[in-house]
């Protein structure tokens, strides 16, 4: 099978990952809904994953893909805990507006 990298080149993937990452960062700054912010974080994570897979193919090395696998595991754990925290916060203050969650500041 013909390889995609031969036709479009690794730099296209890098640009794609950069843009995806920037969109994630923009989302966190732009929104104040905690769940949407979570989604933005997922987007950023996926940008990194995408880059890892691209380079894994580029170097013909399985390690990159293994890392993506672990990243997914960590992301799953993170989402589970994060959402649990959000649920707990929602129960306590009835909102998940991030600007209202300033009680932890020193």
């Amino acid at each position: 099978m013909e390889n995609v990298l031969q036709q479009i080149g690794i730099d296209q993937y890098i640009y794609l990952a950069i843009l995806l990452f920037c969109i994630g960062a923009f989302g966190i700054l732009y929104r104040r809904n905690a769940i949407v912010m979570f989604m933005s974080i997922e987007i950023m994570l996926n940008a990194a994953n995408l880059l890892l897979v691209a380079f894994s193919t580029y170097h013909e090395d399985a390690n990159g893909q293994v890392f993506v696998f672990f990243t997914m595991a960590v992301a799953a754990a993170e989402v589970a805990i994060g959402l649990a925290i959000l649920v707990a916060i929602y129960r306590n203050i009835g909102s998940i507006d991030i600007d209202k969650l300033k009680k932890l500041k020193g």
Partner: peptide, 30 residues
């Protein structure tokens, strides 16, 4: 994209974990 890069395993796992598990979790929470 993963499929394009010929890593079928990750493509499947990605769909299962992200599109399946994580997104269901998020929708459920919302």
């Amino acid at each position: 994209h993963y499929a394009l890069l010929n890593s079928q395993f990750l493509a499947m796992v990605h769909i299962i974990v992200y599109s399946g598990a994580i997104m269901i979790l998020m929708l459920f929470t919302i």
